[in-house]
Design a protein around this nucleic acid. Structure first.
Lengths: 201, 201, 201, 201
DNA sequence: GATGAATGAGGCTTCATTCAT
DNA sequence: AATGAATGAAGCCTCATTCAT
């Protein structure tokens, strides 16, 4: 009864409007998940706490995602997409100049959004979730690894593909330590050292 | 008087016998935990499954560890002690020769015991467990970081302590990638590249 | 803007409806607890059995009370509130007439609701629960002890506060024996004897 | 081997000696139970904690009692026997003089051994244990109720048996309150009031 | 779409009791 | 007699998910 009245008073919403509301909600949930999982961990967070963090009801989450795990995967996926956008190298060839920026942006990203990276690293190491998450990450990473390999080839590395993989792993390790020991980690030292390793300048 | 006599009665199993049983069981439980947590993750493993893996009853685990988390911490602790023993640099100064071996042993260790490293990395990234685990790890690591710093000083690095930290983070990243992508990872390439970075030979 | 619209949507069940459901369930659980704990004791009753007695699932109890002990405390609390209402002396000064009724009502209450009194006495004597329960009881009792003291003063007792305490303890003892030996206990003898002690009529 | 030697060196013990040792142990266990149950409650105490309190092993308790409940019943039984001995009225007729002493001893007993009375009251109110415990108590009490009834008859009470029961319940209530509110309870007031009620002096 | 009551499986932990030695 | 390792049932509680409204 009440419902009818309310609905009758409301301006009709177009399909597009509904779709926008849906997308906003979806993002809001994922961002709540980011904060929550980053703080308490995936297993340490309940759907109830996620609903609270997102300011909606438990049931509504299931309107957007069908399981808790899906929330996680989508959250990681969103984070990785944002990371790639942040690097902003989609349509460029890598140069020393760009590589320099990439190195620096790597640290910036962690400083800006440590929760995401915290949960990201935790997630890609969870047996059972790992596989799905790693596949997602690899999809993003592989797109660019070829770019980096081309760059290393231009710089005269003998095995450019392996170099790309190797440098990628250095990024992982450096990021991890910066994330969890930021107070003891001298990021400028690391930045310069990586540039040296890559023979930049 | 009566008391004296009673106490002089040897128990049917001596204290030493009980102690041996306890030590063996303890290790057996921790090794079961290593296999299990490594395979299914900490949160993915139940105390029931741990008991089964160890071939004992659920209740008995609590005779040796008071919580599930304590099992985890003790397991990590054991693993780290074994790692240190494996490197076998306790009473030596680091030389290029030894550093070379350390680099190689790093990969060997992972090949020999991937479960431990899998759970180790997963654990140190879990919010809520992270702190305890990282503290344990740091205790082990810090003992050696000074040794490495001294080595880097002898080699003429300007900021030997930061170099030790930086190289440590490279080890982390390389190990992580080798662990989860061993099939795509060329360990010989990485070994040589690290040696280059360290100006060995 | 979007938010306003969304919030204006009435939920299909209104807050009031949910609140009514909650209150009813809460009472139902407490009354089930009263029957169950009264019959089998607090430690002899499990949350599973309580759920069964209340005709709901185990988990739902935790939607209303956060621990088993809280169920107990709330149940005692409810019982005490009902007791006070039953005496119906909230806004009256005590007279011989009223005191007579109080004495008689004391026995009536036990006859009407022996389970509550059984669990009540058991509970206030359990180490570990005792303190919380006694505090609850004292809150109720103390409110009235002053009334009784004033009554005893009017009746010329030299130490009216101690008399109130003393008479309270007689009520306890008499109630206890009536509760557990009702078949052997002559309540009319006790009633008359107490009136004599209080010099009523 | 060791065992043989030790046993060979020990003087042979006669059956009587063994029996004495057994009795001492038994008492020691019951007294440990008294302290422990009185402090932590019956349900709050484990057989492990009892063994520790008694300074022996868990297994050995089962050499003397076959269940935890038997320990409890025997402990209550021991306490009641001691109480009766303490009153020391076994072979006497009750007089005003003796009754006076009984009243005073009632409070003394609680002051001397509050743990016992604490657990005693708790126990007789536990459903499931209650029946066994009450039967034990009643056996002790009934022996004396006739004595008290005879005393009340001599004093001219019209219904001496009911008076005995009634006075017994007053003792219960007064004891209970003295036990749990000793700081607020004026025992001298209570003693004098009870004497008045009994028309002593 | 939105709510939160409701479910029930499953997890961690405790503990009385047994038993090999 | 004496020990304490070992068992396993049972208990409390959590939580992803469903569903009536």
């Amino acid at each position: 009864m009440t419902d009818r009245l309310v609905n009758e008073n409301m301006p009709p919403k177009s399909k597009e409007q509904f779709e926008i509301i849906r997308q906003d909600r979806r993002i809001a949930i994922l961002e709540a998940a980011l904060r929550l999982f980053g703080r308490d961990g995936y297993h340490g967070s309940s759907m109830a706490s996620l609903a609270k963090e997102a300011g909606i009801s438990k049931g509504l989450i299931y309107n957007y995602f069908s399981t808790k795990e899906e929330v996680l995967v989508e959250m990681v996926s969103m984070g990785l997409r944002r990371m790639v956008e942040y690097y902003n190298i989609e349509d460029k060839d890598i140069t020393d100049e760009i590589m320099s920026q990439v190195i620096e942006k790597n640290f910036e990203m962690i400083e800006i959004n440590p929760e995401f990276w915290s949960i990201y690293f935790a997630v890609i190491l969870q047996p059972g979730i790992r596989d799905k998450a790693i596949r997602l990450a690899m999809e993003q990473v592989n797109k660019y690894n070829l770019k980096f390999a081309a760059y290393f080839q231009r710089k005269g590395f003998e095995n450019p593909m392996q170099e790309a993989v190797f440098i990628g792993s250095i990024f992982d390790g450096v990021s991890l330590n910066f994330l969890y020991n930021s107070s003891y980690y001298d990021k400028y030292y690391a930045i310069n050292r990586i540039k040296e390793i890559l023979k930049i300048k």
